[in-house]
């Protein structure tokens, strides 16, 4: 018995140790720091209790970052899941009639996912340039007023959300295509025999419910990515103008790495971490319980 236990310990030891050293320990440090006013590089710190958390939820800037993130997610999640599904349905539909076109379009839609984000951000900046960018030139060609896509306080968050949608549609499309391919064709036959005439009925009777697990997975992945939005903000707007595009992860970066406020940044990290954990828990609970058809 003892020997068995020793062997088990030896086998599981390295992995467990790595887990403790590289995951649990840093998380614990961050949690501890979040209750202090620690400054990066400082030699001492004071305990401030929940002060950092009160700042995050109570201060104008903290709340602004939280609300911006929620608004961003509220646009990106439904739009990119819906568009991803729409594109996947379209490509799945034409995959038999014009397979080449379908394959090319698939690659085109997936391009933003595979491309380097920073390079893409530069391209977007050029497209959206107020006077030199193609977008405003097209608008002018159509007789529409040009807009300050990335520097108008009222617009910048929606511009970033549109770019966020553009980024994730391709990935969602691929997931939905896999989901569509997994639907047994006989279910459509069954629905046709049962009286589902036309695409709309077929969609609601077969496609939509059969895509349930895929849809939920896509939603969770998209939500996690939306709440994590950082690169586009950092490269294109730096949270500006006047914090109009400040999001929670950008605020985390700003407070921690630009302002050197390690304690406060830790508090943001903890809140963010908890939110992602909650999202994952919901995913596990819902996926296991309801959508597995078992």
């Amino acid at each position: 018995m003892l020997r068995r236990a020793v062997i088990d310990l030896v086998l599981v030891g390295p992995a467990a140790l790595a887990l403790v050293v590289f995951i649990f320990l840093p998380v614990a440090v961050v949690v501890v720091l979040s209750f202090t006013d620690y400054q990066f590089g400082a030699t001492r710190f004071e305990w401030v209790g929940l002060g950092n958390y009160a700042d995050l939820f109570g201060s104008r800037l903290g709340r602004n970052a939280l609300i911006n993130t929620l608004v961003y997610a509220a646009i990106v999640i439904p739009a990119s899941v819906g568009l991803g599904l729409l594109v996947a349905l379209g490509l799945h539909g034409i995959a038999h009639t014009v397979p080449r076109v379908s394959a090319v379009l698939r690659a085109v839609y997936f391009l933003p996912v595979a491309a380097t984000l920073v390079a893409m951000a530069v391209a977007w900046q050029m497209l959206l340039h107020p006077s030199l960018g193609l977008v405003n030139q097209w608008l002018a060609g159509l007789g529409l007023p040009s807009r300050q896509w990335l520097s108008d306080r009222g617009l910048v968050l929606y511009t970033l959300a549109a770019i966020g949608v553009w980024q994730s549609v391709g990935y969602n499309m691929v997931l939905f295509l896999a989901g569509l391919a997994a639907i047994p064709p006989t279910l459509y036959d069954a629905a046709a025999v049962d009286g589902a005439e036309g695409g709309w009925s077929r969609f609601w009777v077969v496609t939509w419910p059969m895509l349930g697990p895929t849809t939920l997975f896509v939603m969770i992945v998209t939500a996690a990515n939306a709440f994590r939005v950082f690169e586009t903000v950092a490269t294109m707007t730096q949270g500006g103008p006047a914090f109009a595009s400040d999001t929670i992860v950008y605020a985390l970066y700003r407070e921690g790495f630009v302002y050197f406020k390690a304690g406060y940044a830790s508090a943001i990290t903890v809140v963010f971490f908890a939110a992602l954990l909650l999202l994952t828990a919901i995913q596990i609970a819902v996926v296991e319980r309801r959508v597995h058809y078992r």
Partner: peptide, 12 residues
């Protein structure tokens, strides 16, 4: 004066 960003102005 427009509200364009620093990057935009440095291109313009």
């Amino acid at each position: 004066m427009s509200s364009m960003s620093e990057n935009d102005a440095r291109q313009a």
